[in-house]
């Protein structure tokens, strides 16, 4: 069972209160971009074994989208943060780096 703390309402929300939104920090390739870039944006997702950044929505709560960093193997949650950002907070990345020395960082 996954417990993610919603950064908006502060509730340690249980998985069944949340809706998963897939990979976080996608860069959009719209009209004018190449076919390959567009295909990548639309369909190709990382399938990470280890540290992963995800979008979640507190669907059965305050209704807000937020982002979370967790480990897909151990289900350890490193932290959650508001969705109004294009990259993970530096403090969070540093904290994950400490816990997972071999980790190559986001992206």
């Amino acid at each position: 069972m996954l417990l993610l703390t919603c950064p908006y309402c502060g509730v340690a929300a249980e998985e069944t209160e949340l809706a998963a939104g897939g990979e976080a920090h996608l860069k959009r390739f719209g009209p004018g971009s190449g076919d390959e870039a567009f295909e990548g944006y639309l369909f190709l997702r990382k399938n990470v074994r280890g540290v992963h950044f995800e979008r979640w929505r507190h669907a059965m709560g305050c209704g807000k989208w937020f982002l979370a960093a967790r480990d897909t193997i151990t289900l350890e949650v490193f932290g959650t943060y508001p969705a109004q950002t294009t990259e993970p907070p530096k403090a969070l990345v540093a904290a994950i780096g400490k816990k997972r020395p071999g980790w190559e960082g986001p992206k």
Binding site: C9, V11, T16, E17, A59, M60, G61, C62
Partner: peptide
């Protein structure tokens, strides 16, 4: 507290 009761918000 906003949450769910069984299947509904």
């Amino acid at each position: 507290r906003r949450t769910r009761l069984a299947q509904v918000p």
